[in-house]
Simulated assay, not measured.
Amino acid sequence: MEKELTDIQNQIQLAGYIKEHYKLPDTDIRTYSPLTLAFIGDGIYDIIIRTVVVVGGNAPVNKLHKSVSKMVQAKAQAELFHRIQDQLSEEELAVYKRGRNAKSFTSAKNAGIVEYRTATGLEALVGYLYLMNRTERILELIKPVLSAMDT
């Protein structure tokens, strides 16, 4: 599992690489709206989970989808946040709270509003860390979800 995390980290250090490759301008990530951070954070969280599931073994796509769906739904993300909230720095907690408190015009299909907002906060944090090129920190925070896969 540890080698897989290192491999994923090396593969997903994309933000800086993409920015450099396409000569994108420097932007202060702290000025991004929390829903913009959650938008990219959702994709990054999803790709990490998908990568671990796929690298864990070839399987029918339907089985892969079911495995991933359980871990990326709002309820699972809210549970993860409650497991890791004591490990967050003040900066990380502030980003999470901005995401949680953002007024979204959508809602989760299978989650209550509290779970959905908690998940949005977590996604905003993941997006922020990703854009700050702090992939190692993302993997550290997501580790409880990945460890649960081993059991």
Rank of each mutant, 00 (worst) to 15 (best):
N110L: 00
N110W: 00
N110M: 01
N110G: 03
A111F: 06
A111H: 04
A111S: 11
A111W: 08
A111C: 07
G112P: 13
G112T: 13
G112R: 11
G112E: 11
G112F: 07
I113H: 14
I113R: 13
I113E: 15
I113G: 12
I113W: 10
I113S: 15
I113C: 12
I113Q: 13
V114A: 13
V114L: 11
V114H: 08
V114C: 11
V114E: 15
V114G: 06
V114Q: 11
V114P: 04
E115P: 10
E115Y: 08
E115T: 10
E115H: 09
E115N: 12
Y116F: 14
Y116P: 07
Y116M: 08
R117Q: 14
R117S: 14
R117C: 10
R117E: 13
R117H: 13
R117L: 13
T118R: 01
T118D: 08
T118P: 00
T118L: 08
T118N: 05
A119T: 11
A119M: 10
A119R: 09
A119S: 14
A119D: 11
T120F: 14
T120L: 14
T120V: 12
G121N: 11
G121E: 11
G121S: 08
G121K: 07
G121L: 10
G121V: 04
L122H: 05
L122E: 03
L122K: 01
L122P: 06
L122I: 07
E123F: 15
E123L: 15
E123A: 10
E123S: 13
A124C: 06
A124F: 09
A124I: 09
L125C: 12
L125N: 07
L125S: 10
L125G: 05
L125W: 12
L125I: 12
V126R: 05
V126H: 05
V126C: 03
V126P: 02
V126I: 13
V126Y: 04
G127L: 07
G127S: 08
G127Y: 07
G127F: 12
G127T: 10
Y128G: 01
Y128N: 01
Y128C: 02
Y128I: 00
Y128H: 00
Y128L: 01
Y128W: 08
Y128K: 01
L129C: 03
L129P: 00
L129R: 02
L129Y: 06
L129Q: 03
L129G: 01
L129S: 07
Y130I: 02
L131H: 02
L131G: 02
L131C: 12
L131N: 03
M132N: 09
M132R: 11
M132E: 15
M132S: 11
N133E: 07
N133I: 03
N133H: 06
N133V: 04
N133R: 00
R134T: 02
R134G: 02
R134W: 02
R134L: 02
R134C: 03
R134A: 06
T135N: 09
T135P: 03
T135M: 13
E136F: 10
E136L: 09
E136W: 09
E136I: 05
E136T: 07
E136Y: 11
R137I: 01
R137Y: 00
R137E: 01
R137C: 03
R137H: 01
R137K: 10
R137G: 01
I138A: 04
I138E: 02
I138T: 09
I138L: 08
I138H: 08
I138V: 14
I138R: 06
L139C: 09
L139P: 09
L139F: 15
L139M: 12
L139D: 04
E140W: 15
E140A: 15
